[in-house]
Structure formats: C-alpha cells, structure tokens
C-alpha cells in the first residue's frame, strides 16, 4: 500500500487506495485495475472457472506478458504474506509512521480481526 501511494506520488496521481479492500477498481485511477483486481482475487482461491475468466480478461485487455507478470506478483504476495505473519515481523517504524493515516482510514489496522470483502463475489452476483 505504501509503495502504491509512493508510485502515485511519483506519477503525480492520487490513486484511490480503497480498491485494495474490495472495490471493483474502476475508480482507482490505475489503468486496467478492474481486471487486475479480479485476477488477484481469483488466483488466491481455487474456483477454476473464475480463475480462467479472470485470466482471459487480463489477456484480452493487457496481453500475455502482463498476465504473466500480474500472476507472478499475486503469487509472490500470496507467499510473502504468510512468511510475514508466521514469523511475526512487525511493520518498520518508518513505514508505520508513513502509513498511519491511510491504515486508519482504510481499516487496515483491523486486519486479522475481520473478513475482507471480495470483489469477485460481486462479479457472480
């Protein structure tokens, strides 16, 4: 999240960070966010039909190289999150300070205590 915000600052954009918490991604300001979010949600699950549909959506819109890289990033964080939480590493003090405002605003401080809405549930509804 901090890197997403930093990326936006570098690009002179004010991205809507709420997309990572379950919005469709259409209003983030990030190109193709909707299909990327759908892919991210699909590949951490096991619904083969939804994964195939999400994969095809990225392919159609962004091409094969983008699909490979998006799948790689999703895979990486599905792994790295487990390392961070299992080893119990805290957020660095500097990162905690920089992210304090948006963590509170977006409800990230409540992680581990709630269930996050999944946008793919909206795709099927």
């Amino acid at each position: 999240m901090a890197l997403l915000r930093a990326s936006g600052e570098h690009a002179g954009e004010n991205y809507d960070l709420s997309a990572v918490l379950g919005d469709s991604g259409r209003d983030t300001g990030i190109p193709d966010a909707d299909v990327l979010i759908r892919l991210a949600e699909a590949v951490v699950g096991y619904d083969t039909d939804e994964i195939a549909a999400a994969r095809q959506a990225v392919l159609d819109r962004m091409g094969a190289a983008a699909l490979v890289d998006a799948a790689a990033v999703a895979a990486n964080f599905n792994a790295i999150d487990r390392v961070a939480d299992s080893i119990g590493i805290p957020l660095e003090e500097e990162k905690a300070l920089h992210s304090e405002e948006f963590r509170e605003e977006l409800g990230i401080n409540g992680f581990g205590k709630m269930t996050v809405n999944v946008a793919s549930e909206r795709h099927s509804s």
Binding site: A33, M114, V116
Partner: peptide, 12 residues
C-alpha cells in the same frame, strides 16, 4: 495494486 489486494485478502 495486485500486491495490496492479495495482502488484504490474506489480512496481512
């Protein structure tokens, strides 16, 4: 964006 969404689902 992809990283953040996956991490949110994992509550990390």
């Amino acid at each position: 964006l992809v990283a953040g969404r996956v991490s949110a689902i994992n509550q990390c």
